[in-house]
Every structure is written in C-alpha cells, then in structure tokens.
C-alpha cells in the first residue's frame, strides 16, 4: 500500500520535474543560455493563472491558458530585455558573455520574484485544479489533478519530441545545438531560431508553473528553489541532454518521495544533493552527457 502510494506520488512529481527541466536544458542545448530566472518565470505563470482563474472569473481552464501565456510573455521579456542585449553587446568581450547572461538572468529572476511578492504577497498561491476530486487507484486515494498533471506533462514532452525529431523546424533546432556556425553558412538565421526556442521554452516553463501551482501551490519564495531543482536535474542528467534530463527528473522525483515517506519530509531534498555531489565527482558530464 505504502509502496504503491510512493509509486504514484513519485511518478506525478517526477513528470512535473521533467517538464520543468526540459525547457531549461533545451534552452542551454540550443542557444547556450543558462537561464537562472527559470523558477521566477514558473512562479509568474502560476500566480497569473491563480489571479485570472480566481479574481477575474476566467475559470480553471481560462486561468491555466492565461498562465501559460504569461510564461511565454515573461520568457520573451527575459530574452529581449536581458539576454539579447548582452549577446549583441559590443562592449562585453565574447568570452565573458556567458557570465553576464548568468548574472543578468539571476538578477532578472530576483526582480520578478520581488515584484510578485510586492503585488501579491509571498504567501503561496494555488491554481484551481483542472479536474477536482479524487479517484481510487488500487486502494490509493489519489487526487484526479495529480493524474492530470502527469498526463499533461507527458503530452507536452511527447509533442516536443515530435517537433524536434519529425519536423523541419525542429531539426533546425537540433542542428543549432550541434553546429550553429554551420547552420548560418547554410543560410539559416540564428536569431529566428533563438526566438523559436524562447517561445517553446516559454510554453514549457509556463505550463510547468501552472501545473505546479495546481499540484502543490507556488510562492514567490520558491523561485530560487525551482531554478536550483531544474539546474540539479539538468546537471545530473548531463547539460544539454534532453533524455538525460528525463532520466534525472525521475531519479530526483523518486529519491525525494522515498525520503519523504520513509525517512522524514523535512530532509526531502538532502539525498538528491548528496547524489549530485557524487555524480559531479565521479561523472562530471552527468548521467547521459556527451561532454
């Protein structure tokens, strides 16, 4: 019974982690940007969904939709206001640009977090579940919303896979991650590819934020933790490796769930961090990393 409970809860949380981390790793793989405002973008999406579903009467579906849209808008704001000016700047030497992007997105994330706290308090908000109620899964009372969360996460990941592997546009993304200079020589415009990747990233981060808001609730205080958790998953899986991130998301999700159920919820994240230290020592390229 407890085993089944752990299996179900672990699956739901791991799917959500996978969705949250996959955009983060895609972004790094294609455009080389480590976006440290990732968690804050998720928080903005969740809070906007909460606001529209509750105060503006958009209902759970309308709220979720506006939330995802807010994720996309915030992602573009991040790109256009922070990342692109750094990338195109002539006064920042090329080799320092990565550091500038890291610092820039980190500060931008703090600004977003503080803005949310100022406008809506740092108290957690919960997004209305798309499907309320519970179902009985082999004797385990499971909120329907938990199943919806896992299903939507996997549907989104599946669509991403189809996009990348089965469409021409997706293949240019893949090519950009392997050899961006080659791609420009073939006549593709990198800036267009970057805009596309930020759009996909915005949808993924927005969706992850909204689902997390409906599943556990989100507070502006969580922004840093959410970025850190995506970062750990991506490092564990191998920077830029999408399949590595998926595997790592499940390792992290289940390790946390096992710890919370079998040891104590208070030390939920500790074993994952220890594992991360071990992996960085023994296999710095991550579980499935190439480099």
């Amino acid at each position: 019974m407890l085993g089944l409970q752990i299996l179900i809860d672990g699956f739901a949380i791991s799917s959500l982690y996978a969705l949250g981390a996959i955009g983060f790793t895609l972004m790094f793989g294609v455009s080389g940007v480590l976006n440290l405002s990732h968690g804050a973008i998720m928080v903005v999406a969740a809070v906007v969904a909460w606001l529209f579903a509750g105060s503006y009467g958009a209902g759970p579906y309308g709220g979720a939709l506006v939330g995802v849209l807010a994720g996309v808008v915030t992602a573009f704001a991040t790109y256009l206001l922070v990342v692109r000016p750094i990338q195109t700047s002539r006064s920042i030497p090329g080799e320092e640009k990565e550091i500038f992007v890291l610092t820039g997105t980190l500060l931008w994330g703090i600004m977003l977090q503080e803005a949310v706290a100022y406008l809506f308090t740092n108290n957690p908000k919960t997004v209305r579940p798309l499907l309320p109620g519970v179902v009985n899964l082999l004797g385990v009372r499971t909120p329907t919303n938990e199943i919806v969360t896992a299903a939507i996460s996997w549907a989104a990941i599946g669509l991403l896979w189809l996009l990348v592997n089965r469409t021409r546009t997706g293949k240019t993304l893949l090519a950009a991650s392997i050899n961006p200079r080659g791609l420009t020589l073939l006549g593709f415009e990198l800036s267009r590819i970057y805009i596309l990747v930020w759009a996909i990233y915005g949808v993924l981060a927005g969706l992850a934020g909204v689902l997390l808001g409906a599943f556990l609730g989100v507070s502006s205080d969580n922004a840093g933790t959410l970025t850190a958790s995506a970062f750990s998953i991506v490092v564990l899986g191998g920077l830029g490796s999408v399949s590595g991130s998926l595997v790592a998301a499940y390792v992290v999700g289940y390790l946390e769930t096992l710890t919370a159920y079998l040891i104590s919820p208070s030390i939920r994240t500790v074993p994952v961090l220890l594992l991360l230290v071990v992996v960085v020592y023994l296999r710095p390229q991550g579980l499935l990393g190439r480099r």
């Binding site: 409970q5 809860d9 556990l216 969580n222 769930t257 919820p265 208070s266 939920r268």
Partner: peptide, 14 residues
C-alpha cells in the same frame, strides 16, 4: 513537527 519549508504535505497527511 514539520519543516516550514515543506511544499508537499502528502507524506505527512498519509
């Protein structure tokens, strides 16, 4: 006694 950082209370309620 739960940690104020707890986000997932499922194991506790369970």
């Amino acid at each position: 006694r739960l940690s104020p950082d707890t986000t997932d209370f499922t194991p506790i309620f369970n």
